[in-house]
């Protein structure tokens, strides 16, 4: 599936997600399902919550007990494969990397998209971060319905149609 369409299966997605108890605070969810020679996520994590071993090609694994949800790895990943997720009441809150030209502002209503780019619902932007260390990759905090936890991946402005 992923090999042919670029869309991972639900099982793949679930294999990198944590349970709701663990997700009571932000945790890094890494969707890097292929052995590629890359490791900036692991090198940049200030608390060493990400392991890439035994080789540079191994896939990253997050230790949720160590991850503080600081979001440093989110803007570092060249594959835009890392987001933070948290469950709060009946909502899911994400911090996603974003590199397109559309701009978003807090309280803005947006479309929630799945991994195939289809609209699966609406969400609200909570914050937008563009710190210098992010090197032009924005981090957008979005709140969506908890039912979308394993489906949501990115956003699009509603005016866009």
């Amino acid at each position: 599936m992923l090999n042919k369409t670029g869309v991972p299966t639900l099982e793949q997605v679930q294999s990198v997600f944590f349970n709701e108890v663990t997700l009571s605070s932000f945790k890094a969810v890494i969707e890097c399902y292929e052995d590629i020679p890359c490791n900036p996520c692991a090198l940049s994590c200030p608390v060493k919550a990400i392991t890439i071993a035994p080789t540079l090609h191994s896939q990253p694994v997050v230790d949720p007990d160590v991850c503080t949800g600081c979001s440093i790895c989110v803007s570092v990943c060249p594959g835009l494969a890392i987001m933070l997720a948290k469950v709060q009441g009946d909502t899911a809150i994400f911090k996603i990397p974003y590199e397109m030209n559309e701009t978003f502002s807090p309280q803005q209503k947006v479309y929630a998209l799945n991994r195939s780019g289809e609209i699966i619902g609406e969400g609200v932007v909570l914050s937008v971060s563009n710190k210098k260390h992010q090197n032009k990759t924005s981090i957008i905090e979005v709140q969506v319905d908890k039912a979308l936890l394993h489906d949501f991946i990115t956003i699009r402005g509603i005016h866009h149609g």
Binding site: K4, T5, G6, P8, L80, R115, G117
Partner: peptide
């Protein structure tokens, strides 16, 4: 029959609605 490049790059495009036809 498979995408040639890194899947993380392919997924970045798919989530923006770009279809990939193998």
């Amino acid at each position: 029959d498979c995408i040639g490049g890194y899947k993380v790059h392919a997924s970045k495009l798919r989530r923006l609605g770009v279809p990939i036809h193998t």
